[in-house]
Amino acid sequence: MSVESHPSGADPQTPTGETPLALTRRARRMSRVLHEHYPDARCELDFADAYQLLVATVLSAQTTDVRVNGVTPTLFARYPDARALAAADRTEVETIIQPTGFFRAKTESLLKLGAALVERFGGQVPGRLSDLVTLPGVGRKTANVVLGNAFDVPGITVDTHLGRVARRFGWTDETDPVAVEHAVGALFPRRDWTQLSHVLIFHGRRICHARKPACGACPVARLCPSYGEGETDPAAAARLVRTGPRA
């Protein structure tokens, strides 16, 4: 990949040695290609409102969206709002969410979350980042998922996929999720942040895998400084591509 470099001796302050302007231009070109490649990119958690999305996102820690979607219909039928969740039977919740893993810790978080929503926000999910991150079990990643998809408030959702993809793309060399969020956000207009997150997460789940990326099947291979880290043979790479959410 060719880059527009700084003059010798200058500090480029970009992971690839590109000028900041060149990095921004390349990042936006990659984004356009990925948006075309993943026109159906979206939040893969099933939800009907902000409460359901918040609970589902808390449950999604260290498991797959498919497993979460398998338990939430029962959970929401039994506990349709924060007040019901705050008064929930611990054992019953544990039984319902057990397939998602770490079910005892997650049950504790959900019961505390329901109580906090009732006590501090009248049973409603707040629509501000500063409020959301004060809730039990809710960090910036969860808050940005809820804000972007339930309130249409733009945000960068830094999960393991987005962080990995952004570093491979040379958009940042940061490993701290908050630093990644700010670095990626600085490359794009704020209005684009939520959909960009979906596209990057789709790419990380389907092609740019952690252990063996399918470089030979990547739509942005020619723009990626990490091309060659994974399988470059087109036929072999095509066999590595996932076509849907992981169960």
Rank of each mutant, 00 (worst) to 15 (best):
A105Y: 10
R191K: 14
D11P: 07
T74Q: 15
P7E: 05
L132G: 01
R205I: 00
F102W: 08
A50R: 10
H37D: 10
A84D: 13
P39V: 01
C43H: 01
V184T: 04
L111P: 04
D40R: 13
S60A: 14
E36G: 14
I207Q: 14
M30I: 13
K212I: 10
S60Y: 07
G123K: 06
A179Q: 15
L187H: 01
T157S: 14
M30Q: 15
L223D: 14
R120L: 11
R78N: 07
P234I: 01
H35N: 10
D46T: 14
T95E: 15
P189K: 09
V178T: 15
F103H: 15
E108V: 08
D176L: 09
L53C: 02
V125H: 10
D81R: 02
D192V: 00
P234T: 02
E44H: 13
P189E: 15
T157Q: 14
H203R: 09
A22Q: 04
V199D: 05
V133A: 12
D173I: 03
T194K: 06
D40M: 09
G163V: 01
H35V: 00
M1S: 13
Q195G: 04
H161R: 06
T157G: 11
P219G: 00
D49C: 05
E174F: 08
G127D: 15
Q98M: 13
Q13Y: 07
P154S: 02
V33F: 12
L117C: 06
F47P: 02
V125R: 01
A247V: 00
I201Y: 13
D131G: 03
L223Q: 11
V118K: 12
V158F: 12
P39S: 01
A210E: 13
E94D: 07
R246T: 13
S31Q: 13
R167I: 02
I97M: 06
G163P: 07
P225M: 06
A48S: 15
A84V: 09
C224L: 00
L200N: 06
R206D: 10
R164T: 06
A217R: 04
G122Y: 00
A84E: 12
V180E: 14
T14A: 05
R222G: 11
G17L: 06
W171T: 07
R67G: 02
P12M: 01
R167Q: 11
P73A: 04
I96T: 02
D81K: 02
D173R: 15
T157P: 14
V66E: 15
R191E: 15
Y79K: 09
L113I: 05
